[in-house]
């Protein structure tokens, strides 16, 4: 009887928090990019880059948002987004603060691919 109640699906579950806990996020990749390309510090999120981005007009790629996600440690799914970038550099041309966005993207791709492969390995290990 009790078992019955326990296994019954009541249609409720514990909601996952949407909050980003800034005390717990991993900012190693963000810090690496900030060190390797210091102009990354200068972004004021004006969105000029995204406005001019061809990839951003047709896909969910949003370079301003990607930059911010990295700096808040929200890395999942970013690598796939970065694949939409064609490295045309228009974002770099319009940036009022001179952020070398192209270089930032290349660094992100490099660092995130390492992150993604580690994630993959971890997953596989757990499965074994």
């Amino acid at each position: 009887m009790i078992e019955n109640i326990m296994t019954k699906n009541w249609g409720y579950q514990i909601s996952q928090t949407r909050k980003i806990n800034l005390d717990e996020v991993d900012l190693t990749i963000a810090q690496k990019i900030l060190d390797m390309e210091p102009t990354f510090r200068l972004c004021i999120s004006c969105g000029g880059c995204t406005a001019t981005c061809t990839a951003g007009s047709f896909t969910d790629f949003n370079i301003r948002r990607v930059n911010l996600m990295i700096r808040r440690g929200q890395l999942d799914g970013l690598y796939e987004q970065l694949n939409h970038c064609m490295l045309c550099g228009k974002c770099h041309l319009v940036c009022p603060h001179g952020v070398n966005t192209r270089k930032v993207i290349l660094l992100m791709k490099q660092l995130l691919s390492e992150y993604e492969s580690h994630r993959q390995i971890n997953k596989e290990e757990k499965n074994v």
């Binding site: 999120s45 004006c46 969105g47 000029g48 880059c49 995204t50 406005a51 001019t52 981005c53 951003g56 007009s57 949003n62 301003r64 948002r65 319009v94 009022p96």
Partner: peptide, 26 residues
Amino acid sequence: GRVSEASQTIDGMIQIKAEDTLLAKP
């Protein structure tokens, strides 16, 4: 959002591009 560029349309209007950064959409 910062306007990235303006261009003239065939009917003589000015078309501007920006990102609505609060919506995260161009």
